[in-house]
Simulated scan of single mutants.
Amino acid sequence: MFDVDTYLTKLGYSGPRAATLETLRDLHKRHLMAIPFDNSLNADAERGFDVLLEVDIDDDATFRAVVEGGRGGVCYELNGLFRRLLQELGFDVKILAGAVIQVNGEFGPELEHIFSCVEIDGEVWLADVGLAGPSYLEPLRVSDEIQEQYGCQYRLVEEDGYRVLQRRSRGAEWSNSYRFKLQYREITDWKQLVPDIAEFPLEQVLIGTRIHSRAFDNGQMVLIGKRYLRVEDGKEEIKVLARPAVFREVVSQILTPGV
């Protein structure tokens, strides 16, 4: 059964529960550090895009598996649970849809990614604990300004009627993460995903590729297949983990917080 106290204990949070920006920032980062992104259950290529249609999660069942059971999850699970937590704490939370940048440099279907935004004191903040990454560790303000977090910069640019989230690590160029419209969604909107993906090449969205990621205090670890990206204080290091023992060690580090 979904329980706020158990959830906050999982995140290691014992601070104020008021619906403030400070609380949101703390919970967002703690969530990314405590609960990994892990698509192991959904990486079966035969299922194709079926996993993208399961956004209407059973909160209690997902809570038992992720928060109590210790496994990771994907965007609709992690952001769905986080959305419920924020609502229980009194935050004004809305659902957003995003199209993630693909391996060919193009954006995927418009409803491919589900995340949230939170309105606080008249400002809108993006909250996303369900993107493999690398991504923002704390909420981002919806504005034109460049925002820096732990050595990385983020900005939202207008392009073809969308807001495009861009990220830049130290010494690198701006790169696209995903695009979205500031259009509040309902879970039922995801029924439209079926025709949207009918002609979309599955290989472009890494179906069948295992993806694991988790944040730490000043960065993030992202493993896509055997390609390992570690970001620390804005500095990126990329390796291909060819040795099985090293690969298993990195998977363990990501999926077991505290290791």
Rank of each mutant, 00 (worst) to 15 (best):
M1E: 04
V4Q: 08
D5M: 04
K10S: 10
L11Q: 07
Y13W: 06
A18R: 07
A19Y: 01
D26K: 08
H28D: 02
K29L: 08
L32P: 01
N39M: 06
N39D: 05
S40E: 00
L41F: 03
N42W: 09
N42D: 15
A45W: 03
G48A: 07
D50C: 02
E54D: 04
D56R: 10
D58E: 06
D60K: 07
E68P: 04
G72Q: 06
G72S: 11
G73Q: 09
V74A: 00
Y76I: 14
N79G: 00
L81T: 01
F82C: 07
R83C: 07
R83P: 08
R84I: 13
L85V: 15
G90Y: 14
K94F: 10
L96W: 11
V103T: 14
G105N: 09
E110L: 02
E110G: 04
E112F: 04
F115I: 12
C117D: 05
E119K: 07
E119D: 06
I120P: 01
D121K: 13
D121E: 14
E123Y: 11
D128Y: 15
V129P: 03
G130P: 10
Y136K: 06
E138H: 01
P139H: 08
L140K: 10
R141S: 05
D144L: 14
D144W: 12
I146M: 11
Y154Q: 10
Y154N: 13
R155G: 01
L156Y: 13
L156M: 14
E158P: 03
E159N: 13
Y162E: 06
Y162F: 11
Y162V: 12
L165T: 03
Q166N: 05
R167L: 15
S169E: 09
R170E: 08
R170Y: 03
G171C: 11
W174K: 11
S177C: 14
K181S: 03
Q183G: 07
Y184V: 12
D189K: 05
V194Y: 02
V194L: 08
P195L: 03
P195A: 01
E199N: 05
E199V: 06
P201Q: 02
Q204D: 07
V205S: 08
V205W: 00
I207W: 05
I211D: 00
H212R: 15
R214S: 06
D217S: 10
I224M: 00
G225E: 05
E232M: 04
E232W: 08
K235D: 00
E236N: 08
I238F: 09
L241K: 06
L241S: 09
A242E: 01
A245F: 06
V250C: 03
V251T: 12
T256L: 10
T256Y: 09
G258N: 14
V259E: 05
V259T: 09
